[in-house]
Amino acid sequence: MRDVSAAGLEATIREYFDGCNEADAEKMIRCFEPDANHYFPSGAPQGTFFGAKAIAEGWVNAVKTFGSIWTIDRVIVDEKKREAVIEWTHFKPKAGVYLRGDEWYIFSERGLIKEIRAYYACPAIQEPVQNHMIGDYDYKGLGYPMDPPEIARDV
């Protein structure tokens, strides 16, 4: 069981990012429930990472391929809900680019990461898409609106 205080949840996120930057798969895996998922915008080239091992392998591969380095730029934690939101930068020195975005974290009762939903500050794909959302995420099943609500307007 990990520390589930606000400081403890933030520490888990920071340990996970340290593991990413060190390309240390085991360090990353220790931060997650085994069946955790990391969702990305629909059309993102890597797709969804299903499971702690896939999450770790994905970031180890990013370090090898792009020389990836990540920073945590802002953190907000809701201790009672065991949720957090961070703002990050993902530098890819070998490609000469960087990405900025946010991630929503959901933690288990044990203080391990169960889910990450990534939101990019820019489109993940070049071709036009009709709807912008995270790929493989069950918006409808989780009760998110799928159609705009009826709103009375004078315009």
Rank of each mutant, 00 (worst) to 15 (best):
P128Q: 09
F66V: 01
K27W: 08
P45E: 13
P149N: 04
K94N: 13
P41L: 06
D147V: 14
I29Q: 02
Y16V: 00
A84C: 00
D24M: 02
G141C: 04
D147S: 06
P45N: 04
K53T: 13
M146I: 09
R74M: 12
E87T: 14
C31F: 06
C20W: 09
T12G: 11
F32P: 01
F91N: 12
S5F: 05
A124L: 12
L9T: 10
S68P: 01
M28S: 04
I113A: 08
D73P: 07
R74S: 13
G111M: 02
I151E: 08
Y105R: 00
A56E: 12
G135K: 06
F66R: 05
R14Y: 13
N21T: 05
S108P: 07
G47D: 01
K80C: 00
S68A: 15
G19D: 08
E33H: 05
A11W: 01
A11N: 08
P34W: 08
K53N: 09
I106N: 01
Y144K: 11
W104P: 00
E127I: 02
E150N: 04
V63E: 00
T48W: 01
V97L: 09
T12A: 15
D18Q: 15
A11C: 02
I113F: 13
Q130A: 11
Y144R: 10
R100A: 01
I113Q: 07
L99H: 10
V77D: 02
W104M: 09
D147G: 00
P34Q: 06
I134N: 15
P45T: 04
N61T: 12
Q46S: 10
A124K: 01
D102W: 14
F17E: 11
V60R: 10
R153W: 03
A44T: 11
K64F: 02
P145Y: 01
A95R: 09
G135R: 04
A84G: 09
D78E: 13
G19K: 08
N61F: 12
E26P: 01
E109G: 08
F107N: 10
S108V: 07
Y39P: 06
R100Q: 13
R153F: 08
N37Y: 03
